[in-house]
């Protein structure tokens, strides 16, 4: 996503700040902004971002509580197993519902076998403030599992929501860190937008190593990440 580079300095906004939009037609307001009568005000503290593609505006902050949003991938643990659905803890205010039929090739007779405590990588299919979030383990574009489903073995680390978003935004330093880590150890990871990263490797020792590297890179700046990455790539 291209961020308007005309103003490279940070635009810090606080709740209640009015936002001056340059183009008033077809504005898309993202998280942290709301419309009151005829003006746009900010409701969260953070950095104001804008992209001219589709005229989108949003506020980027670093909150710890996950607010479900449609189409995001999350990692959850099963807390309840019912006849029709599972209930998953995804770190949001309400527990999410995962219908038994929301799996690839699932039907009334062929149902998935998940137990309480299982880790699931799923996609949010419905997010509405008045309803419990609903999950699916099928990619609607291909009607295939595409990596969604139960995560077996491995380890989950908890990190900030912002860190998870940075992986998805394709930050070069983080990607190169992963590439170098991959040269050293065989590992697999799943990033949930709810601040959870699942990692598994060939042995427990390697899993711990990968977890420590990824957890350790969270609070480093780009140059330090490069240093860590270089020290790995022996």
């Amino acid at each position: 996503m291209e961020i308007d580079l005309e103003k490279p300095e940070l635009k810090v906004v606080l709740p209640g700040d009015p936002i001056n939009v340059t183009k008033k037609e077809n504005i898309k307001l993202g998280p942290g902004l709301t419309q009151t009568q005829d003006s746009i005000i900010c409701i969260k503290a953070g950095i104001l971002n804008h992209t001219s593609v589709k005229n989108k505006w949003w506020v980027e902050n670093n909150q710890r509580r996950y607010i479900p949003a449609e189409k995001e991938s999350v990692i959850g643990t099963v807390t309840y197993k019912g006849g029709e659905f599972y209930r998953l803890d995804i770190g949001s205010a309400h527990q999410a519902i995962l219908p038994i039929l929301a799996f690839e090739n699932a039907n009334k007779k062929n149902r998935p076998n998940l137990n309480i405590g299982s880790l699931i990588y799923a996609r949010i299919s419905l997010a509405n403030k008045d309803m419990e979030p609903e999950l699916t383990c099928v990619n609607p574009e291909s009607n295939k599992a595409d990596g969604y489903g139960e995560l077996k073995g491995g380890f989950v680390i908890k990190c900030s929501l912002r860190y998870c978003r940075r992986f998805f935004s394709g930050e070069i330093e983080l990607i190169s860190l992963l590439e170098l880590l991959q040269k050293k150890k065989d590992f697999e990871m799943a990033i949930g937008m709810n601040g959870r990263i699942w990692i598994t490797s060939t042995s427990i020792k390697d899993t711990i190593f990968c977890c420590n590297v990824i957890k350790g890179a969270e609070n480093l700046n780009c140059s330090d990440i490069n240093k860590v990455a270089n020290s790995l790539g022996i």
């Binding site: 940070l10 810090v12 606080l14 503290a45 950095i47 670093n62 700046n221 780009c222 140059s223 490069n226």
Partner: peptide, 20 residues
């Protein structure tokens, strides 16, 4: 003061990304 404190904190986070 509040604005100053928030700006400082956000700059710290942003520093991880924008440095270099």
């Amino acid at each position: 003061e509040i604005r100053g404190a928030i700006t400082n904190k956000l700059q710290e986070y942003q520093g991880y990304q924008t440095e270099l």
